[in-house]
Design a binder for these strands. Sequence first.
DNA 1: TTAAATTATGAATATTATTCTTTTAATAAC
DNA 2: GTTATTAAAAGAATAATATTCATAATTTAA
Lengths: 156, 156
Amino acid sequence: MNLDKIDLSILRLMQENARISNVDMAKELEMAPSAVLERVKKLEQRKVITQYTTKIDPAAIDMSLLAFISMKTSNTVGCTTTADELSKIKEVQEVHIIAGEDCYLVKVRTRDSASLMALMRDEFSKISNILSVRTTIVLETVKEDQQLIIPEINTK
Amino acid sequence: MNLDKIDLSILRLMQENARISNVDMAKELEMAPSAVLERVKKLEQRKVITQYTTKIDPAAIDMSLLAFISMKTSNTVGCTTTADELSKIKEVQEVHIIAGEDCYLVKVRTRDSASLMALMRDEFSKISNILSVRTTIVLETVKEDQQLIIPEINTK
DNA sequence: TTAAATTATGAATATTATTCTTTTAATAAC
DNA sequence: GTTATTAAAAGAATAATATTCATAATTTAA
């Protein structure tokens, strides 16, 4: 898995705009479109690119409530069954195992606080080993993206 | 901003795969490609669709360290200057204003803990009004996406 | 240095995007 | 209810892009 300068440039262009055409990328990179296409396919095969996705304004589809939930569980270290169960829930966008006192940090998006309440009642309650939860409601999101900083040259 | 059944279906398809072709969407929706294209353009114009982006495996480009930082600031409620300054930092993926004791929840991605340290020393220190920070390191991410649940029919 | 493997090019073809006119459908006014 | 008005969809034509593949160039390693 060694990415060269060109691969990184492709990733940079596609991260910014997943719908950029091969022709446009080829122009930018001063290469033939076919060569670019081959590299993109390899990046997909090697799972460097995991998905092409569309960012949607949550308010436009009325899914504006965001919350972070810290959890303590009775799991032994390294056991991710609780995390796996959480991951299956559609409203759960992120599940992280964290260092420190709590065990999991979970990001959840629902329509409103009533839906969050329902989610906790109907879904979280069924999940085993949860000892305690602490829910933090987001009042306003100032920035939210997954954009990575892509290095100029591979550092590995 | 009223989205009908077809708009929501388009969003569902494009959220799953931003590079789906108009032709394929048209087949799926049993419509003419030109009609689908027009709707997509409108969704872009109305900023329902905010970006087409590519998900990249952070490990592949050696950007594996994820951390959440809780901050207290001396800002008055509603003043987002600190949040705006934080948002400008490339390593900062998310900035949320939260209810409760702390003020901000910030998600940061860097190469390693040394880079995080450098970021805090060089960038965060310059930002005004920060009273305290509490950094939580992510040991493992079990799930991470921005996928929204798109309703079948508009609820508004 | 040479052989093998990888990557890029360029041309041909297939597929898709895009535009525009016509038709249809939906909405509102009377 | 009928008709005017508007919005959306279809369909056809053209432009642009993706994709394939044979060949050439480059890189890698023996």
